[in-house]
């Protein structure tokens, strides 16, 4: 039996501002497996951020149910504090939320709220900093404002990790980072997922990131869940994402082009190694045919 850490049933969410109403989510039903990495993709305004904010109770469903690790997020009532601890959330441009004088104090902000012993806080902070690749002996006492953008973002990630969440929700975590910053960020993220068995939920519109990281994709469009499946299944279907304003990762697009040209290459390939391997195979079979 599969273990669903998050299960959403018939979720609707409507924003209300003054006299205006706006339906943001319509009838979402989805499940996310424990320990996996799920990606929620869709264009701006498709409801991605609204959806993930239900996972730690920042938003409450207008109707429908959201169950996160056994805790129900209801329309009203219920203790959501437990949930905030279990679900760590990193918003867009998280480096803007740093405020303390030192990296150490900033990362310790969350754990200190949990009424832990000083020693426990210390271990957690040092561990979190280590995990995100900022060795405490060089970084802990520096001011977060003198670090680079990518490093500050990793400090913010450490701040969330120090709460020891079971689920980590990242809302477009790499926007505004350069290529190196991106790769680094994802390297440490994957380490967290594998080492601590944290379920990672990624909100993104960068398909190539999603293709390599996620086990499961959920495509949102205008507040509806229009498609779900493994990246292999979704990107393997050719240009299907175009109708929702999304594009495949460049590699998939290249393969689709090659396929159209008549090359017998499988479409459900989405890492460079696999693609190279497939191309080599085609090459060898062609050689064999010529030699026969």
């Amino acid at each position: 039996m599969t273990d669903h850490i998050i299960s959403v049933k018939n979720l609707y969410h409507t924003y209300q501002s003054g006299p205006l109403q706006k339906a943001a989510l319509l009838d979402i039903t989805m499940e996310i497996e424990r320990g996996s990495c799920a990606a929620i993709i869709g264009i701006t305004g498709s409801g991605k951020s609204t959806l993930v904010q239900h996972f730690n109770g920042l938003l409450r469903p207008t109707s429908g149910t959201v169950a996160v690790d056994g805790v129900n997020v209801q329309a009203r009532g219920g203790d959501l504090k437990v949930l905030r601890q279990r679900v760590g959330m990193l918003f867009q441009f998280p480096e803007a939320q740093l405020f303390e004088h030192t990296v150490y104090a900033d990362v310790a902000f969350g754990p200190r709220r949990l009424k832990l012993s000083k020693r426990e806080v210390r271990t957690r902070v040092l561990q979190a900093l280590e995990t995100v690749g900022l060795p405490p002996h060089t970084y802990a006492q520096r001011s977060p404002f003198e670090l680079s953008g990518g490093q500050r973002r990793r400090v913010a990630l450490a701040g969330v990790l120090a709460m020891l969440p079971k689920i980590l929700v990242l809302d477009e975590p790499t926007t505004g980072l350069d290529a190196d910053g991106r790769t680094e960020f994802y390297y440490y993220l994957q380490r967290v997922q594998q080492k601590d068995g944290v379920t990672v939920i990624l909100v993104s519109h960068d398909m190539s990131e999603v293709a390599t990281l996620a086990d499961q994709l959920f495509v949102l469009h205008n507040g509806r869940l229009v498609m779900q499946g493994t990246p292999r299944a979704i990107f393997g279907q050719g240009n299907i994402l175009h109708q929702w304003g999304l594009t495949e990762p460049p590699l998939s697009e290249l393969l689709i082009q090659l396929h159209k040209q008549g090359l017998a290459i499988p479409l459900d390939v989405f890492t460079l190694e696999e693609a190279l391997h497939a191309l080599q195979e085609i090459e060898t079979t062609r050689h064999e045919k010529e030699n026969v």
């Binding site: 730690n56 920042l58 760590g88 918003f91 939320q97 902000f109 969350g110 709220r113 701040g159 969330v160």
Partner: peptide, 21 residues
């Protein structure tokens, strides 16, 4: 709003806790 949400997610609590917290 964004900052509130971010800090609440990190364990800040504006409605409960001691004055210092």
């Amino acid at each position: 709003e964004q900052l509130l949400k971010a800090q609440i997610s990190r364990g800040a609590d504006y409605a409960h806790g001691t004055l210092r917290e």
